[in-house]
Simulated scan of single mutants.
Amino acid sequence: MNQSNINDTAGSSGDMAVVGEGTPNRTPVSIQVLQNIYHELTGKSEEVSKTYDESFHVVFNDFKQLNLRIGQICEQYNICSSNCSVSVFYINDTKDTFSSFERFEAFNTGSTSSVESVLVTYNFLLILPKLAQPQSYTISVRIASPVAIQRKMSNIDMPKIFRLMGGARTAVVSIKYVDYAVARTLLNTIDEWFNALPQARSNAAWRFIRSHTDWTPLITRYLAGAGVLALMIFLAPYYLNSEASLLQLAHFLLISGACIFAAYKIADHLGTAAEDSIDDWLDLAYICITDGDKKEVALAKSRNQGAIVWGILKLAGGLCVSIAAKLIAFRITNIP
């Protein structure tokens, strides 16, 4: 374009730019035209994307709603051609691919395989009002099922941090475009669909507990250690009197140290076990379109209930170590 200056003229027209500003050949040009020229010259398409970490509950009818929304928003454009493909990925490393959404609607929901993720892809050729050439747009919507992924990863020996990170991203939307305004319209439509999906909810207190489970071993071991130490100080007069020998003192200190160390380690193990149990609890985010998914969701709910019960029991056990030590000591010494 002969080193022309291109500037936005947002003050006068939201969809116009000026080519050759400050020269005798100053010409207002539509943003659509400029974007199309750039695409024709470079052959490149831009991309906009958005990721989600909410715990969505997606059923088969929700995909129909997504297809309906995209079809409705595209009615305002002059569509030359379009196609849709759907890929369903299973946790047993198999995949079903459907060449159209109509074929996907005939999907076998009676399958016993659990769905790991679903990828819906739309390709459009559309002509904008101020252009004569069609432009290519690609929409990709990928939704994961963390419930199924967790089950798959449970068979893999890996650090806990990687297991937790595996379920962080639940959906990704990407749009390859030529005209940014069209891409934003499409993205907003898909975003509204995601916002309408049901989600797992947890209260603020439980979220706080789950975000600070690393405190659990620290709390249990220091409370247990402090409790047993206080107990030994309380019992000292019953074992040591004014006539106690140095050997008796050494014997008492040795027993006290061993009891404090044992209580500290037992409480630490129970606190760590309680932390692991609570960390096993996950917000239920899933895709449920097959009989296998229904079974997987039921198992996930059962795991969550078990994680809460075992977490409470192990935490209570860690906190009760000092109490148990006190009762044993009182029983042995016959202190009322």
Rank of each mutant, 00 (worst) to 15 (best):
Y177R: 07
R142Y: 00
E75Y: 08
S4F: 05
H212W: 10
G257A: 04
K314V: 01
N241C: 14
I73F: 13
A224K: 06
I332V: 13
A324K: 03
A307C: 11
A263C: 03
L254G: 11
G227M: 09
I149P: 00
G166A: 15
V182N: 02
W310T: 06
M153P: 00
R142Q: 08
D157P: 01
S140C: 02
F89W: 05
D157K: 10
Y38M: 07
V141I: 06
F194R: 06
S85Y: 02
R201V: 09
A300P: 11
T51N: 09
L240W: 07
A148H: 00
L240P: 05
A316P: 04
W193T: 04
V58G: 01
V33H: 05
S114C: 12
R331F: 02
D293W: 00
A316I: 12
F56L: 02
S12V: 11
A324G: 13
L235G: 00
S49F: 12
D15F: 04
S202M: 11
E46D: 13
L223T: 04
Y177V: 00
V147M: 01
L34V: 06
S82I: 01
F98K: 02
Y122E: 03
S55H: 09
Q76K: 10
A10I: 12
I335L: 13
F56G: 01
N78M: 07
I91K: 00
I255M: 09
N304D: 13
S117I: 11
D93T: 06
T185S: 11
C320S: 15
C288M: 07
V115F: 04
T170W: 00
G167W: 01
M153K: 05
E275A: 15
N78Q: 09
V118R: 02
T185N: 14
W215Q: 14
S245Q: 09
K160W: 14
L218V: 11
P217T: 07
L125H: 05
V120A: 06
N7G: 01
Y180D: 04
G317Y: 11
I79K: 01
K130C: 02
N67Q: 12
N83F: 10
S302T: 14
R207E: 15
K95H: 03
H57V: 09
T272S: 15
T42G: 02
